[in-house]
């Protein structure tokens, strides 16, 4: 086995040629660390690493570094997410150094939803905020790689103890303009992305096609691509994602399945919910299995937004347990 870059659990799983599983853990909108710990307890052992979102959908939440530290204490491995929206290059690097000092080993570089999102309309958020975008995701990847591999800060000053980071980023395979997406992935890989978590995949066929191009470009050898799976909790959510989430399209057949599940509940609200949640589990497991078969895919990244407790069941049903361990 080649020398590890960070020695993170996720890196090890991938290096060992195992099918990796990551899952998302959303911090609360207050300073209640217990919430994080609770979620950590539920998720523990069900994935190789856990993404801690960074003010997701532009809503203020407990910082990803602090949350990451909490789950470290709980014995989980965090993937600290870092948006370029909220911090300039100074703040980002300072936070990275701090996070590494606390034991974080994975970092996911993302642009972050624009502040005008404000929790996708459900919350107020901070649409009047001034965003930063001092550097973009690709520049952030380069900066982290420079810190780790060359021992220099982005501005050129030296770093004695280099941060051992497993550098990741997101990728929207079916985003618009679709023809540019593989190239953009290549730019990320060229910049130094060690692993990729994709935007949620529902349209497996389309994803397959994009992956074929990626494989032809040899990118799957240079980075580990984890297919993003967003657990579709109910019909409404599927519809929302199909209509409003960029780069996500839900095939009609999936929509129909979920709709049928909902309808089967008749007038009984509770039954409706139960039916849909059951169907959601089934769909998710199927998606995982389908993605797993796509050449070039090295794992899955599961997002059960504010529904983390569903993860263990899904991972189990998908036959992904137990997760490998290393000593």
């Amino acid at each position: 086995m080649a020398e590890l870059l960070s020695g993170s659990n996720l890196e090890r799983v991938l290096a060992a040629g195992k099918f990796a599983v990551t899952a998302e853990l959303g911090p609360p909108m207050d300073c209640n660390g217990e919430v994080v710990r609770e979620k950590a307890k539920i998720l523990k052992g069900n994935a190789d690493a856990f993404n801690i979102t960074d003010n997701q959908t532009a809503v203020v939440r407990m910082s990803s570094i602090a949350s990451a530290f909490i789950i470290l204490q709980e014995g989980l491995e965090p993937v600290m997410q870092m948006t370029t929206r909220d911090r300039n290059r100074l703040a980002i690097q300072a936070d990275i150094l701090g996070a590494c000092a606390l034991g974080c080993k994975n970092c996911l570089c993302i642009a972050g939803d624009h502040q005008s999102f404000g929790g996708a309309g459900r919350l107020k958020g901070h649409p009047g905020a001034k965003n930063v975008y001092d550097i973009d995701t690709i520049q952030l990847i380069s900066a982290l790689k420079g810190m780790r591999d060359d021992g220099v800060q982005q501005g050129g000053d030296p770093i004695d103890k280099r941060p051992p980071l497993f550098i990741g980023c997101a990728w929207t395979p079916m985003g618009d303009p679709i023809e540019i997406r593989p190239t953009r992935l290549k730019k990320k890989v060229d910049a130094g992305a060690d692993f990729i978590q994709t935007q949620g995949v529902y349209d497996v066929e389309a994803f397959k096609e994009q992956m074929k191009i990626v494989v032809d470009m040899g990118l799957h050898e240079r980075t580990a691509i984890l297919a993003g799976i967003i657990v579709p909790r109910n019909f409404g959510m599927l519809k929302y994602m199909n209509n409003f989430v960029s780069g996500v399209s839900v095939p009609k057949e999936l929509m129909d399945r979920m709709k049928a599940a909902m309808k089967a509940g008749g007038d009984d609200k509770k039954q409706k919910r139960i039916n849909q949640e059951e169907e959601a589990g089934k769909i998710t497991v199927e998606l995982i299995q389908q993605c797993r078969e796509i050449p070039g895919i090295k794992g899955v990244h599961l997002q059960a937004i504010e529904w983390e407790k569903k993860i263990p069941e899904i991972v189990e049903k998908a036959g992904l347990l137990p997760r490998p361990t290393f000593d």
Binding site: T84, R85, A111, D113, H114, S116, F117, N131, Y133, D136, T137, I138, Q139, A170, W171, T172, G175, D176, P177, I180, R184, K187, Q199, S246, G247
Partner: peptide, 21 residues
């Protein structure tokens, strides 16, 4: 670009429009 990205587009583009509107 709403995010002043130098290496865009971000994942938010859809139908040629920006994620913000």
């Amino acid at each position: 670009c709403s995010k002043q990205i130098m290496n865009g587009p971000c994942g938010g583009t859809s139908d040629g429009k920006c994620e913000i509107s």
